[in-house]
C-alpha cells in the first residue's frame, strides 16, 4: 500500500479493479507500471512518485463514491493533469520540468567503464541468483541468440511452457522489470549510481 492511503481506501481501489483479490493486485501493478512509463516517456523527473499520486487521487475519488466507469482512461486523464502540475511546479515538491536539464551520461574512461561493467554484471548475477531458478533460466533463454530465428525460438519456448507467445513476452517483461529494479538497487547500494 502506498503512503497517503488508508487501508480502507486502498482496499476500495483494489476491489474496484477486480473482485478477485489476487487479480486486483495484478491489475494494480499493471496500472502503476503503465503510469510510471507514461511519466518516464514524458520526461518527468519522478515517474514513480507521480504514478503514486495518480493512484492516490483515483483511490480518493472512489472513496468519495464517485463512479468511474473506465479506470484506466480516468488514470490517463489524471496523469496528464499531474504532469501539467509538475511542469508548472505546482506540486510544491518538484521543480518545473523546463528548469530541469538532464545531462547526457558522461563518457567514462576505459578503466572506469570496465569497472562499471563488472559491477553491473556482478549485481545482475546476484539478482539472477535471488530469482527462482526457473525464472532466471527463462529470462536468459528468452534473450539468448544463436541458431534459428528469434521468433521461432520464442515460439518454441512458449509451446514448451504451454503459454501463448504474448503471455510469454509479458511474463519475461515482468521478470526483466523486476531484475532492472534489483540491479538498480544493488548499484545504488554499492554507490555506483
Amino acid at each position: 500500500m502506498q503512503a497517503g492511503l488508508t487501508a480502507d481506501t486502498f482496499a476500495g481501489l483494489l476491489s474496484r479493479l477486480d473482485a478477485d483479490r489476487e487479480r486486483a493486485g495484478e491489475k494494480y501493478e499493471d496500472l502503476r507500471r503503465t503510469l510510471i512509463r507514461f511519466f518516464e516517456w514524458r520526461g518527468a523527473p519522478f515517474p514513480e512518485e507521480h504514478a503514486d499520486e495518480v493512484l492516490n487521487r483515483l483511490a480518493r475519488k472512489l472513496g468519495e463514491g464517485v463512479e468511474i466507469r473506465n479506470v484506466r482512461a480516468f488514470c490517463h486523464e489524471v496523469a496528464r493533469l499531474v504532469l501539467l502540475e509538475s511542469a508548472k511546479g505546482r506540486d510544491g515538491r518538484t521543480e518545473p520540468l523546463e528548469s530541469i536539464k538532464f545531462e547526457p551520461a558522461a563518457s567514462p574512461d576505459g578503466a572506469s567503464e570496465e569497472a562499471e561493467k563488472e559491477l553491473g554484471l556482478a549485481c545482475l548475477e546476484d539478482c539472477l541468483r535471488a530469482l527462482p531458478a526457473e525464472s532466471a533460466g527463462l529470462i536468459l533463454e528468452y534473450y539468448r541468440g544463436g541458431e534459428g530465428g528469434q521468433i521461432e525460438r520464442r515460439k518454441a519456448l512458449a509451446q514448451r511452457l504451454g503459454l501463448r507467445r504474448d503471455a510469454l513476452a509479458n511474463r519475461v517483461q515482468r521478470l526483466r522489470d523486476k531484475l532492472e529494479r534489483c540491479v538498480s538497487d544493488c548499484l545504488r547500494k554499492k554507490g555506483a549510481v
Binding site: A105, E116, K117, G120, L121, C123, L124, E125, L128, L140, Y142, Y143, R144, G145, G146, Q150, L179, E180, V183, S184, L187, V193
Partner: peptide
C-alpha cells in the same frame, strides 16, 4: 540510463555463459 546499463549487463551475462545475446 539505468535501463541501458541493465541491458549492457544482461548482454554481458549472456556472453559470459557462452551464448550470444538475441539479435
Amino acid at each position: 540510463r539505468e535501463r541501458a546499463r541493465f541491458a549492457r549487463s544482461l548482454a554481458a551475462a549472456l556472453e559470459s555463459r557462452g551464448v550470444p545475446p538475441a539479435a
